[in-house]
Design a protein around this nucleic acid. Structure first.
Lengths: 185, 185
DNA sequence: CTCGAAGACTTTAGCACTAAACTTAGAAGG
DNA sequence: CCTTCTAAGTTTAGTGCTAAAGTCTTCGAG
């Protein structure tokens, strides 16, 4: 069982070794499909680790960065309710309550009751939060540019187009048209 | 981040809307890069949700499936120590202790002390665990085949090749050669 | 032979999340 | 007006993780 010395973070066999091992154990595997799917999964995990390190240098967590991104995406005046934030981030409202507590304590957002409807709460990005978002965005886009550096403009376009087609298939999850793939959300 | 990897999902703006919104707030953004990166992230999240649902139908969690996969990948006789499992999955040994507790209770693996070195523990896949892995693998490969259904053989090859190139860039993280991208693990 | 150090787990404390119960404000109906 | 219903958040209980401290076995030096 080959193993070299490693440290925190996943240490796995090479992608080729992994695919070969799966084929030994499961003959029906299409290596082309497996290559694309496994590479996608691994790449995404590595990228998330990298994003986490980058934003940690700004003193925020990946989770906090997600909230900042969502508020910025909502456009000026950068306000959303906890429920809406939770829905967009795929969390429960309970989790948002605590995340917002923390972020309000750090000055990244404010939390106030809506004066027109006192059941509602409004979370609003502060200037500091917006600045953190901008700094994180700069780091992230530099990192992404760096990651794609070896790909030509055409290749980048092809990659994006192929991924978008897969994403459409997953997000629309047509009840029929040849495949099942339903019930994804 | 690891694994499992992030995470959210349901109600987001469309990818095009998202990219347009980012460009409004951050002029330096390369839309081509952002399209590829964002599509990759979203696609991965959706796929993880889908895998979770599929294996849940077999009565196991995504986390348990990861352990089964790792043991099968190690090859017969499907044995690894908790520390090695933790390293490959990117978890702490403490987390593995509890995960193995659960899985041993469910009969998916056995946990025994190594008789030759009583400090070591050996986690071994049971027949039931191996069967579960096979069932999950069948579901996963059907799902993946379904996902890639709209892509031609050539397109699948191109997608895999491009992703593998990006993965190599991330995993090797060259100390230098034009880009930084160091310290990713 | 005994002590000390190292290695491989396990245990403890604390954090972030989910599911489900609870609280409160506004809306709807009698 | 008073229920009752519903919507939006918060609170509670329980899970699974990390970091750090603890335990137990083995190894090595004196």
């Amino acid at each position: 069982m080959s193993e070299s010395t490693e440290e925190p973070g996943p240490s796995e066999p090479s992608l080729d070794e992994q695919i070969a091992a799966y084929q030994r154990e499961f003959r029906d595997l299409d290596p082309q499909v497996e290559q694309a799917v496994s590479a996608l999964g691994r790449l995404n995990r590595r990228m998330n680790v990298a994003y986490g390190r980058q934003v940690a240098a700004l003193g925020i967590s990946n989770a906090e960065w997600e909230v900042l991104k969502t508020l910025v995406l909502s456009g000026a005046p950068y306000r959303l309710g906890p429920g809406e934030l939770a829905k967009r981030l795929g969390l429960t409202p309970a989790a948002m309550t605590h995340r917002i507590d923390r972020m309000a304590g750090e000055g990244l957002v404010t939390r106030d009751r809506d004066e027109n409807n006192r059941v509602r709460v409004i979370v609003e990005l502060t200037d500091e939060g917006r600045t953190k978002w901008l700094e994180a965005m700069r780091m992230a886009s530099d990192f992404e540019e760096d990651l794609l550096q070896d790909l030509s403009g055409d290749e980048r376009g092809v990659l994006g187009e192929l991924l978008v087609r897969l994403l459409r298939r997953v997000e629309h999850a047509q009840p029929d048209a040849g495949g099942r793939l339903t019930d994804l959300d």
